[in-house]
């Protein structure tokens, strides 16, 4: 099938200092990944086209992009999913460096702000694993899936309007520890998320849930954090 691919371009170093679009007409299979099309353009049409990618099957989180106006991983969306007119743009709300490459540093800074690591120095006397029931483990299973691709945060209207907001991805990662029965510092993370830049900035637009390539129930996870903030209970 023939695909009309419209690609966002921005590269001040090469004189492309205003956002513009390049158009390509390509022969593609319906089951090709959008990433395959970008690779094709880079390999045979214009090597200057720049984007991040690595695993190419939706696990490493490198290639979050806006495709036909919605956030996807370019390697996890097929041509047949989006039709034969495809527009590819960088994720929103981040500083664009070159083409699809944005500055990810503020995103990771936000992630680091909630102490994203298990806090618990006690180890069983026999040196073996801490016990955790299947149900306790299940309680935070959904939020362990996060690959830090930023598709959720950069689809969030509250984040677009206020980049002080920690964003959904950070709350998801806080949730992963807050609801882990082994963790001893949920209050610390809840305090951070109770600040003005925290969970209350979420207006439940559900964009994040729709955008998540790992199908994490992001809005629900945020609601559970809000509930914990209100009730002080972690159940």
């Amino acid at each position: 099938m023939e695909v009309n691919l419209r690609i966002f371009r921005y590269n001040p170093e090469a004189g492309r200092n205003k956002p513009s679009y390049d158009n390509y007409t390509l022969e593609a299979d319906p089951t090709d990944r959008v990433l395959d099309l970008l690779e094709l353009v880079k390999s045979y049409h214009d090597g200057t086209l720049s984007f991040r990618r690595s695993c190419a099957h939706g696990v490493c989180g490198s290639d979050a992009m806006r495709i036909n106006g919605r956030n996807y991983l370019a390697c996890k969306v097929l041509v047949q999913d989006v039709g034969n007119n495809i527009t590819v743009e960088p994720i929103l709300g981040m500083q664009i460096i070159k083409d699809m490459i944005v500055d990810m540093e503020p995103f990771f800074e936000s992630y680091r702000s909630i102490s994203p690591f298990l806090v618990n120095d006690e180890i069983p006397e026999d040196g073996k694993e801490r016990l955790q029931t299947i149900e306790q483990r299940e309680r935070f299973d959904d939020t362990t899936k996060c690959i830090l691709c930023a598709a959720c945060t950069t689809s969030c209207p509250s984040f677009w309007s206020n980049d002080e907001f920690v964003g959904p991805a950070t709350i998801v990662n806080a949730h992963r520890f807050i609801f882990d029965s082994r963790d001893t510092a949920p209050e610390k993370r809840l305090d951070i998320l109770n600040e003005e830049s925290g969970a209350w900035k979420c207006r439940t637009a559900f964009n994040c849930t729709q955008a998540c390539p790992r199908e994490i129930h992001v809005t629900q996870a945020i609601a559970e954090v809000k509930n914990a903030l209100t009730t002080g209970r972690l159940d």
């Binding site: 180890i123 955790q132 029931t133 306790q136 483990r137 520890f177 082994r182």
Partner: peptide, 8 residues
């Protein structure tokens, strides 16, 4: 001990 969420 580092926090890895193994299945149980």
């Amino acid at each position: 001990h580092m926090g890895l969420p193994f299945s149980r």
